[in-house]
Amino acid sequence: MSEITLNAPRMFDLTGRVALVTGAGSGIGQRIAMGLAQCGADVALLDRRTDEGLSVTAEFIARAGRRSIKIAADVTSGSALNEAVSQTEKELGDLTLAVNAAGIANANPAEDMEESQFQTMMDINLKGVFLSCQAEARAMLKHGKGSIVNIASMSGVIVNRGLNQCHYNASKAGVIHMSKSMAMEWVTRGIRVNTISPGYTATPMNTRPEMVHQTKLFEEQTPMQRMATVDEMVGPAVFLLSDAATFVTGVDLLVDGGFCCW
């Protein structure tokens, strides 16, 4: 047993660390980026556009007393992601934390789905996560340490009743298993890779007025009888990135209100 101090451990403190968050302009990615700053990290904010969403994230981080930079990049471009990592390290310091939350969701019956719809889903949700991890890990391997969290979905574990989204489900299942595979490739080289699989979450996409009926069904189907808030994804992300999880890698953490128990 290592020596235990009498002072409370600061295992969740991210002070002095640099993080890159993709999809930081809205929803889960935005709230996690804010949460990392609340725990002391400086954060590079990446999204397809540096519009109002990223500005809101950056303004929050500034009020929290931390630094951020805004980066417009497409996660389907490896060169753009490599440049984003280089910019992050040049302006903020050594990159050792990353959260890959950029993704899309839509639905269509499998027999009617155009090939382009399927391919776009895979390009963004699966290839985009791969390229993000690749760019981030190249930097982290040089530093000999790092932690990556990829945002998957409970839809990568179960099939959602009433939703015709085989392409989305497949992309998220791919993220989970790909993350486990990368975790094992880098397990002796200082990098941990884990996934968070949210259940139904009250993001802007799920709370649009035209989604009222669907939202009610989401709540009824969840054992806790409600959707998650984006705030409830911060704690799991901070845990997996922090020193509290130094022996945790290759794990898919379900944050689903008990959905996958039934």
Rank of each mutant, 00 (worst) to 15 (best):
A202K: 10
A244D: 07
L217F: 06
G40V: 06
L217G: 07
S132T: 15
A139I: 01
I176T: 08
A73W: 01
T201D: 11
S171F: 06
R189T: 06
P209Q: 12
M154V: 12
V21L: 06
T50P: 00
N206R: 11
D123S: 10
A41N: 01
L45F: 06
A228K: 00
P109G: 11
T229R: 07
M224Y: 11
K216T: 10
A80G: 11
A105Y: 14
L14D: 02
L54H: 05
W186I: 04
S55Q: 15
R49C: 09
Q134R: 15
L254R: 01
S147A: 15
L36I: 06
A228S: 15
K145W: 08
C166I: 13
Y200P: 10
H167R: 06
E89R: 02
T207K: 00
G16C: 03
A170D: 06
G53A: 15
G199W: 03
S2Q: 12
F218I: 02
G93H: 02
V99N: 03
D13G: 02
N100A: 05
L254G: 02
R192H: 08
N169G: 13
S77V: 09
L46S: 03
T203I: 11
M34F: 04
G78I: 07
H213E: 11
P236V: 07
T246D: 09
E89V: 03
S153Y: 02
V43L: 02
T188V: 10
M211E: 13
I196W: 00
D112C: 14
K172Q: 10
N206Y: 09
H167M: 10
D74C: 05
A8T: 13
G156A: 02
G78R: 13
S77I: 12
G65D: 09
G257W: 08
N194R: 08
K145Y: 13
E220A: 14
N169F: 04
P9F: 12
N164M: 12
L92M: 09
A135T: 05
G174Q: 05
G65C: 09
L241I: 05
Q221S: 09
R63K: 14
G29Y: 04
F247S: 10
V43E: 01
H177N: 14
T207M: 13
G190M: 05
V159N: 05
G257Q: 11
Q225K: 15
Y168R: 05
R63C: 05
A41I: 01
V212Y: 04
S68D: 14
D243P: 00
A101W: 01
Y168Q: 08
G162H: 12
T15N: 15
T246C: 08
M184T: 11
A152Y: 00
G144C: 04
H213M: 12
Q214Y: 03
T195H: 01
L253G: 08
N194P: 00
G53W: 11
F259N: 11
E59I: 09
A244R: 05
H177Y: 06
A37N: 03
E115K: 07
L46R: 01
N169H: 12
R10W: 04
V85F: 04
A98Y: 03
V85I: 15
L131W: 09
F259C: 07
N206C: 05
